[in-house]
Each structure stands twice: as C-alpha cells, then as structure tokens.
C-alpha cells in the first residue's frame, strides 16, 4: 500500500499529488456540509451517500436537496439536477481519449474538478493518470464527507466561515489559467463567462453556465494564434 503510494507520487511528481490532495480535502469538507444540510432538511441519514454514490456531482446534489428541502417535487429536483449536469456532455467528448481504456469508470468519475485537473495536463499518459487518481480520491473524500456530515447533522452546516465556498472557483481558476494564455481561448471563455454571469439571476440555479457556450460563435472571427488546447504551459503549475 505504502509502496503503491510512493510509486504514484513518483509518477505524478511531488507537486501534483499534493495539489490533488489539497483539492480533495476541500471537497471532503464541502461533503460534510452537504451531508449535514441534506439530513438537516429532513432527508434520511442514507440519502447523502445514496446521492453521492449514484449521482456523484456536487452542484446537482446540493440543488436536489435544496428543492426537496423547500418542499418541491421529486420531478422538479431530478429535472433541475439533469439541467445542471448537462455540461458534462462536452466534458465527455473532450476527455473521450483519456478514458478510452475504462470508459464506464472514467465516465462515472467525470466531475468538474477531475476534468479541470486532467485538461491541465498535456501529455496523454499523465492526463490519464491524473484523471483517475483525482477521480478516485474525489469519490472517497466526497463520500466520507457526506457520511460524516449526515452523522454530525446540524452541528456543522456553515463551512462558509472558512472561506471554502471560494475554494471551488479558485481551484477552477488555477487549473484553467494556463489554457487562457491562448488569446483566442481567453476571449471566448471570458465572453462566455460574462454571458453566464449576466443570465444567472434570470434562470433556474446552475443552468446559466450552459449559455457560455454561445460564445463559441465568436471563433470564426477570432484570429488563431495558437492551437487552442488546454494544457499549454501546463508545466507552470507546480
């Protein structure tokens, strides 16, 4: 076990495994708050883990709990969750090559943080290793967090005190910034983000993100100064 860990650390490099663990620590704590909120809303103790195993998607799980907790219907909660998770469709196409040896497991583990970590790697072999390492860690931390939160109940609900709500966007920022040094990608991404932010107050929670893809229509008019693959300058991250 220890030898396997050392081997993994060697293959990933000292920095990457530490980065993955840091993100997973934050994910675990958010998982605690997810479990606590879900049980606090009156759902049974097994509900957080059922969701964390069957769905494995933080944003959609919080939304599902929120809608049920507010007295909404199960149909509304499922539909809202599906809308939020529609963004995983292009993720799957972007990482199809990365998970081609284990497509079922790879698809199951395709979570935002895992996608961001994988896309930040350029070398296909490293990308695959980072994807599955981060995915497996995330599954473990998210589920342990959900379970602990459910057991602790209302004792801990407010992880915002530690600024952990800022950690998720910060992780994404840190991982996508290398790709944004390509001016074409940057323009499209920033316009897309502006569209999504502007639309957020007017749409069901979590769905405005999808509108960011509208910015892709700008591509033909933007000058190509580089081949737009994320992971350029991935070596920046240490």
């Amino acid at each position: 076990m220890r030898a396997a860990w050392r081997d993994l650390s060697e293959r990933l490099g000292p920095g990457t495994l530490r980065d993955i663990l840091l993100v997973n620590l934050a994910v675990g704590i958010v998982g605690v708050s997810y479990g606590a909120i879900t049980v606090g809303d009156g759902l049974p103790l097994w509900a957080p883990n059922l969701m964390s195993i069957v769905v494995l998607g933080g944003a959609s799980q919080f939304l599902f709990t929120g809608i049920i907790g507010a007295g909404g219907s199960a149909v509304a909660a499922v539909l809202a969750g599906l809308l939020v998770n529609a963004r995983h469709l292009p993720f799957g196409f972007a990482l199809a090559g990365t998970v081609k040896e284990r497509p079922l497991l790879g698809s199951y583990l395709m979570i935002d943080e895992v996608v961001a970590f994988a896309l930040a790697e350029k070398d296909p072999e490293r990308r695959r290793l980072v994807f599955f390492t981060c995915g497996a860690c995330l599954w473990i931390f998210w589920n342990i967090g959900s379970l602990l939160g459910g057991l602790l109940g209302n004792a801990v609900t407010d992880t915002d005190v530690f600024g952990l709500d800022a950690a998720f966007p910060a992780v994404l920022v840190a991982l996508v910034t290398p790709a944004l040094r390509d001016s074409r990608t940057r323009t499209v991404a920033l316009v897309g983000a502006a569209v999504a932010v502007a639309a957020t107050p007017f749409l069901p929670a979590g769905t405005a993100v999808l509108l960011a893809l509208a910015a892709l229509v700008l591509l033909p008019v933007l000058r190509r100064d580089d081949f737009p693959t994320p992971g350029e300058e991935a070596g920046d991250r240490s």
């Binding site: 292009p90 996608v115 896309l119 994404l172 991404a189 897309g192 960011a212 893809l213 892709l216 994320p230």
Partner: peptide, 9 residues
C-alpha cells in the same frame, strides 16, 4: 475549448 469555456463560466 467547450470544456474550458464551461469551466471558466
């Protein structure tokens, strides 16, 4: 590119 755009958004 779509994946990056979505992650930034």
């Amino acid at each position: 590119m779509s994946a990056t755009v979505l992650l930034v958004a």
